[in-house]
Amino acid sequence: MSTDSTIIEVNNLVRRFGDRAVLDDISFNVHRGETLVIMGGSGCGKSTLLRHMIGSMKPTSGSVRIFGEEITAMKERQVERVRLRLGMLFQSGALLASLTVDENVALPLVQHTKKSPDEIEQIVKRKLEMVGLTGFEDLKPDEISGGMKKRVGLARALALDPELLFSDEPTSGLDPIMTAVVDQLTLKLAQGTHMTAVVVSHDMTSAFRIATRMIMLGHGSIVAQGTPDEIRNSSNPEVQQFIHGEPDGPIPLNLSQEEHKDHQHVRPRPFLGARFRFHHKRP
């Protein structure tokens, strides 16, 4: 373990789409073992921020350091090396539709390790048990529910035992019990293996349960940050409105048409896979 316990360091991050700054001068640090929850209204730049942290979008200015390395200046192959150490759970699960549930979870193991098929099967089974799924191994993603897809996505993100887990709304679409299971899993991993987690969430119950620190985004900048208690007792009316889910308050309800148009540009980057890349097998 490195002596430097700062896993993510975001400094003065700015991302513009046209004239509008979707991310405007954002800075924060995440330390090893922490669970950071990023919250904020729809279209406030949460997903854009996440994409900058995994290196799939390049900022207009500012820096993002992951494991002490500047990810914004990296070549594709260096980014891939960093990505082997992190897991990402997509909002939709993003499972490969052509593969079965267990093949999906096995995919990173098959591609990046030299483990035997038996070992891989064991690991896959264990990961699926962790997220409370057994007996669905041979089904295709189309044949399982949205919540189950998400849990399979989580199992896949954890397949390589990542040091850092990004989750995009891990609990939306899950029933309260499954939400608790997923939250408990995140907590257990954070405490047991010192996994660091960055979670984007709307679900306030879940957020307060797992967070060691919280950031609230609004209009592309950080409205408030602190421990769950600090956030809960924040005097900022925007924060209070958000965590209590009140319809009236300082957060504007409607986007202007121009803002809406800008949001349409906040897409994942265009396909860049056609660049030369290398695979780095895990030792």
């Binding site: 990402m88 490969l96 591609q111």
Partner: peptide, 12 residues
């Protein structure tokens, strides 16, 4: 998002 998921898993 399957292609993006592949990229994040460092699979070209």
């Amino acid at each position: 998002e399957e292609i993006e998921a592949l990229e994040v898993m460092a699979i070209n």
